[in-house]
Design a protein around this nucleic acid. Structure first.
Length: 343
DNA sequence: AATCTGCCCAACCGCAGGGAG
DNA sequence: GCTCCCTGCGGTTGGGCAGAT
């Protein structure tokens, strides 16, 4: 059964709000509040608007202390950091930015920030291409080279510089974000059933046998349209995938500390179900569980290189691009399986 | 000056979650 | 447990504007 419309179409006004409508809505809410019922509110005050429209207008524009435009560098960093951590959950991201609305953050990300980062990424890529002869291992990347020629799944972490230590030592004060209050404000992240639920919501596909049976999930693979686009724009690139089992072995044997963009060290949590839905997995950080910061985030794919752990290919994490985009200099990090991949 | 193009952002749309009955 | 209704959310649209041609 279809949902009943919240208001009768044709009887409500659409489009931009007039100053009179704004004033009516604002004064009513200041005086009486919303009354807990947005649907009934426009009728009460004689506005020919849908309740949802009133709510949106109030939340995004009329309510006190709303800031518009003029995002600061610090806000940019927070948005990037949180987007990398939790994806496009704009309401949560906006909650970390006083005076900002989810709509504002979303618009800002889609129209400017993404392009800003993309521009940096492209420039870096061009720079790397033009100076590719200088190093056998690309500066600033975590490279995992899965040598398909042997069955040894040990993956040795070779770090010329610990990324965590590096970040903690070098990040500017403005980048020292408070921990995302998942535990208190986002109970969804607080227990595994909630995480399971969330992952299902995000398109999760797992069960108790998942780890044994699910070998070739499309984790870290590109959405088709993006891949197509990049094929047109750049050189043809080989896309492969990493299985959850490979990721499990990889993270366990490498004893890897992963970098969470909010700068809390993460460790893989091997005794818990390993959630792989093609985009996410679960890690334990200092203050609870986090999603895998290395997941391929929708809309953020341009930050990822195109090398993955499966079938002897190399997975090249996005951390350097992220860090560089956020203003960090490169660090030398490599994870080698068998032999160093040459760039 | 007129037209085109791309960008920005307010607003809309549809869906999911959750509470009430 | 089921249905209905409201709220909240994220994705998308389209009008207005500025700069380019």
């Amino acid at each position: 059964m279809g949902r009943a419309p919240c208001c009768e179409k044709g009887k409500v006004k659409k489009g931009p709000w007039s100053p009179e409508e704004d004033a009516t809505l604002k004064s009513y809410i200041h005086q009486y509040g919303t009354g807990g019922n947005w649907i009934a509110l426009p009728q009460k005050i004689g506005l020919k608007r849908c309740g949802k429209s009133c709510r949106l207008r109030w939340l995004n524009y009329l309510r006190p202390n709303i800031k518009h435009g003029g995002f600061s560098e610090e806000e940019d960093n927070i948005i990037c950091s949180l987007y990398i951590s939790i994806g496009s959950r704009w309401s949560i991201i906006a909650a970390q930015l006083p005076g900002r609305t989810d709509n504002d953050v979303k618009n800002y990300w889609n129209t400017r920030l993404k392009k800003k980062l993309l521009g940096k990424h492209r420039r870096q890529k061009q720079d790397r291409n033009s100076s590719s002869s200088s190093s056998s291992s690309r500066s600033g990347n975590i490279n995992c080279n899965n040598n398909n020629n042997n069955n040894n799944n040990n993956i040795n972490l070779i770090t010329t510089q610990n990324p965590l230590a590096y970040i903690h030592d070098h990040q500017p004060q403005s980048m020292l974000l408070p921990p995302i209050p998942y535990s208190n404000q986002e109970p969804r992240f607080n227990d595994h059933s909630s995480i399971r639920k969330l992952l299902i919501k995000l398109g999760g596909n797992f069960n108790s046998n998942h780890l044994q049976n699910h070998h070739d999930d499309q984790i870290l693979s590109k959405p088709h349209d993006l891949h197509h686009q990049e094929e047109e724009e750049e050189e043809e690139e080989t896309i492969s995938s990493i299985s959850d089992q490979q990721m499990l072995k990889y993270t366990q044997s490498a004893n890897i500390d992963l970098v969470c963009p909010n700068y809390y060290p993460l460790q893989y949590f091997p005794n818990e179900p390993h959630f792989m839905n093609g985009t996410t997995s679960t890690f334990q950080g200092q203050n609870g569980n986090y999603e895998n910061p290395l997941m391929k985030l929708q809309g953020f794919e341009f930050l990822y290189e195109d090398h993955h752990i499966s079938n002897g290919t190399t997975y090249n994490f996005c951390i350097d691009e992220i860090m560089n985009s956020l203003g960090f200099p490169s660090q030398e990090v490599a994870i080698d399986h068998g032999k160093m991949h040459e760039y």
